[in-house]
Computed example of a mutant assay.
Amino acid sequence: MTTMAVYGEDVPSTMGGVVCYGPGDYRHEDGITVPAPGPGEVLLKVSAIGICAGDAKCFAGAPRFWGDGRKTPRYVEPPVRPGHEFVGNVVALGEGAGEKHGISLGDQVTSEQICPCDVCRYCERGAYQMCIPHDVYGFHQCTQGAMADYVLLPARARNHKIDKSVPPEHAVYTEPLACSLHGVELGAVQFSDIVVVSGCGPIGLGMVGGVRQKSPKLLIALDLYDWKLEVAKKCGADVVLNPSKCDVVKEVMRLSGGYGCDVYIEATGHPNSVVQGLDMIARMGRFVEFSVFGKETTADWSIIGDCKELTIVGGHLSPRTFPKAISMIEKKQIPVEEIVTHRLPLSRVVEGIEMVNKSSESIKVILLPD
Rank of each mutant, 00 (worst) to 15 (best):
V184T: 02
E289S: 12
N89I: 03
M1F: 04
Y128L: 03
H270W: 00
D370C: 04
Y150S: 09
V336P: 05
A188G: 01
C246R: 14
M147C: 14
H170V: 00
G236V: 14
A56W: 07
T110V: 13
H101Q: 03
G16T: 13
D279V: 03
V239L: 11
P167W: 08
G98V: 07
L152I: 11
V275L: 13
P335K: 09
G277V: 09
V42D: 09
A157E: 07
V275Y: 07
V46K: 07
N242L: 02
E9A: 04
P168S: 15
V195Y: 06
G206T: 13
V184L: 03
E361M: 08
N357T: 00
S291K: 04
V166I: 15
P319T: 12
K45R: 15
V313Q: 11
K233V: 14
V184W: 02
H101I: 05
Q108S: 07
D30I: 00
H160V: 01
G315A: 12
S362G: 06
Y150T: 10
R343N: 05
V240S: 08
G204D: 08
L105F: 06
G69P: 01
V184Q: 03
S347V: 11
H342E: 13
C261L: 07
A56S: 14
T3W: 06
P37I: 01
E337W: 03
H316F: 14
F86D: 09
K164N: 04
T298C: 02
C120P: 11
S318D: 10
V248M: 11
G260Y: 09
A146I: 02
A178H: 06
G31L: 09
V136H: 07
I32R: 15
P243F: 09
T33W: 00
H101N: 05
T321G: 04
P243E: 10
G126H: 09
A188T: 04
M4D: 05
L344E: 06
M253Y: 12
P345H: 13
E175I: 04
P167C: 08
V196P: 05
K233M: 14
L181H: 03
W66L: 01
V196K: 06
E351R: 01
T2C: 00
V211K: 01
G305S: 15
G24S: 12
